[in-house]
Nucleic acid binder design. Structure first.
Length: 589
RNA sequence: CGGGGCGUAGCUCAGCUUGGUAGAGCGCUGUGUUCGGGACGCAGAGGCCGCAGGUUCAAAUCCUGUCGCCCCGACCA
């Protein structure tokens, strides 16, 4: 049965609430798709739910086609599992934890690696049971620091998560085979949902190599930064993005004598520049400063030096240092070890065996440098690598240790230049390895009757984000409202009788029956509203096709057919009544 | 978590500086005229001014606390 507008709940609004700042959020509320209950918590109203379910159905079909089988796991998860994998700590405050009446803690699942691994341990005992891919579509919970942008970053959201188990990485039944299948399924899913996407390399974790990809929808409201080579052969997110070869020069001559400058209360790069400008009446650019960051790995201090206008990439520094446990040093601990936090300079490495110094190529240059003086409230001018560090006897390693920025050389070293854009992450595929099976002591026997930890892949899709991305995309909205891709539109066709009475009502009902018989979803605007209101609402909710029934057209045994995306003209076209069903069936195929 | 801001009608907001019995537009109800791109008139309904204390003859307005929400930043599968 076709839905009648008067019978469902579509609370359209002329104005969006003040807290909606991005187009998808504003339109999802104005079109009556969602309603906010609390920070980052939304009700899906009938129109929004229909769109969500269409996206879920596409995901389901493609998962099944890729050989995954659906399950449904609990949201309420024993905290012990999270403690066993160290993820309670790793997730930190993002993990929702509730106490039951006995005082036992449970996590509200933000993802299900622990649960699926535990499940695997229970039922998968032999290599003969592998490979296996399971998935679910379920509500996930994350206690976000800052929920925002409506459904794009919420505390409660719908996610499809799939997990695969294997004995080997390569070969038949290996993790890579399933990974590739999932990757391909993701491409089909996003194509079918009508959202434009790009695949970028992401931080790979323990397995290394080509082990993680993110599916991103390019959009200025995205919260992730992605870099692409203008040669079109490389794309990665900012955490992962490598930078091509750059010149380095630790041999440059000093620009002057090392001179200490009193910079009271200026620990930051910006502070120092502002201080130079105001108090010393000298211009100092951030790119003429060296940022010296103190990290720690075991008992070794690992110091990263980058240009003042750049950001340290901890994963890169970890890799350069060849350690796995590197993190930013605790401030107090570092002070106690003799580091004047806020005023550290590379010279601090001179004469210390417990310090390893790593420098980014752009910081490993001659010329004029200002950096910390290793004394509280002091910086130095005319710092020089050769004189103050190398010849002074300290070891320096030059390595790519910073986040890439717009204009950096492509890591392909083919003359390509990296360009930075923002994107919305809608999917992520990841080769996990044995992290969870090891932590939870899950073993299967292989052909040689040895007990081994299976390796895993995990594959996630933010289903709500598909909706928001479809609206955010180019062509997904205009000044009048949403423009849905037909595949996830709440309805395919909106029938708008100017007045729902007499012949117009009869035709509306008849067309609805015929269209639904062909598998087309129909909404009839049967409200006793003025035409202008109906048209405005029609544009706002963005149903792909509108059939308008007015006296003039009906008198000619015709109806007006208008595509929401404007593809059949700004005023649509007149179509004979008995031809419109076939025409729509063809158009929606 | 740091910085900033906001809680007044379903929604958008004014009123607060300078305390004196609550306002507008949209929406809603009734009614009449309208009826192809968010009509107009008339008549109405609707608010413990987030909550709790305090100051005062008197608090939406001043003070304190508290809760909620938003923005910027930091953080992050």
């Amino acid at each position: 049965m076709a839905t009648k507008w008067s019978n469902t709940l579509i609370p359209t609004a002329r104005q969006a609430p003040a807290d909606a700042v991005v187009p998808s959020h504003q339109l999802m509320i104005r079109a009556g798709l969602i309603h906010k209950l609390g920070s980052g918590v939304y009700t899906y109203l009938p129109l929004g739910l229909r769109a969500l379910q269409k996206a879920m159905q596409i995901v389901r079909e493609e998962m099944d086609k890729a050989g995954a089988v659906e399950v449904l796991m609990p949201t309420l998860q024993p905290i012990e599992l999270w403690e066993q994998t160290q993820r309670r700590e790793a997730y930190g405050d993002n993990l929702f934890v509730v106490k039951d009446r006995h005082g036992r803690e449970q996590a509200l699942g933000p993802t299900h690696e622990e649960i699926i691994t535990d499940l695997c341990g229970t039922f998968i005992e032999s290599y003969r049971d592998l490979p296996k891919t399971l998935y679910q579509i379920q509500t996930k919970f994350r206690d976000e620091f800052r929920p925002r942008f409506g459904v794009l970053r919420s505390r409660e959201f719908q996610m499809k998560d799939a997990y695969s188990f294997h004995l080997n990485l390569d070969g038949e039944g290996g993790l890579s085979e399933t990974y590739d299948k999932q990757y391909a399924a993701y491409c089909r899913i996003f194509e079918r949902c009508g959202v434009p996407y790009e695949v970028v390399e992401a931080e790979a974790g323990p397995i290394g190599g080509n082990a993680s990809h993110e599916f991103m929808v390019p959009s200025p409201t995205g919260e992730d930064f992605i870099l692409k080579s203008d040669k079109g052969n490389y794309a990665a997110n900012v955490e992962k993005c490598e930078i091509g070869d750059r010149p380095r020069n630790l041999e440059g001559d000093p620009t002057g004598d090392l001179e200490s400058v009193n910079t009271p209360g200026c620990p930051g790069i910006e502070d120092v520049c502002a201080f130079f400008k105001k108090q010393l009446k000298t211009k100092l650019k951030t790119q003429n400063m060296l940022k010296t960051l103190v990290c720690k790995s075991g008992d070794t201090w690992v110091i990263g030096v980058i240009r003042g206008d750049h950001e340290l990439n901890e994963a890169k520094l970890r890799k350069a240092a060849g350690v796995s446990d590197l993190e930013m040093a605790d401030e107090k601990e570092a002070r106690d070890a003799g580091f004047a936090i806020g005023f550290v300079g590379p010279q601090v490495a001179v004469g210390r065996n417990d310090v390893k110094l790593f420098v980014d190529p752009d910081a490993a240059q001659g010329g004029f440098w200002v950096t910390g003086a290793n004394e509280v409230d002091h910086h130095v001018k005319h710092f020089n690598w050769k004189r103050d560090v190398v010849d002074a006897g300290a070891q320096v390693t030059v390595a790519d240790i910073r986040n890439a920025v717009d204009g950096d050389p492509s890591p392909k070293n083919d003359g390509g230049v990296l360009q930075m854009t923002k994107g919305i992450e809608i999917g992520h595929v990841f080769k996990l390895g044995d992290k969870y099976t090891k932590a939870l002591k899950i073993e299967v026997v292989n052909e040689a009757n040895e007990r081994v930890n299976p390796i895993m892949g995990c594959y996630g899709i933010g289903v709500n984000r598909i909706l928001a991305s479809a609206i955010e995309r180019d062509g997904g909205n205009d000044e009048n409202g949403i423009i849905w891709p037909a595949s996830i539109a709440p309805y395919h066709v909106l029938i708008t009788p100017i007045k729902y009475a007499g012949q117009a009502a009869e035709v509306a009902d008849k067309l609805a029956v015929e269209l639904e018989a062909k598998g087309i979803d129909v909404l009839i605007d049967d409200r006793d509203e003025r035409p202008g209101v109906k048209f405005k609402d029609a544009d706002l909710i963005g149903i792909p096709y509108r059939i308008t029934l007015g006296d003039k057209a009906l008198a000619e045994q015709s109806v007006e057919l208008k595509a929401r995306d404007g593809s059949n003209g700004p005023k649509g076209e007149l179509v004979k009544m008995d031809a419109v069903v076939d025409q729509l069936v063809a158009a929606l195929k």
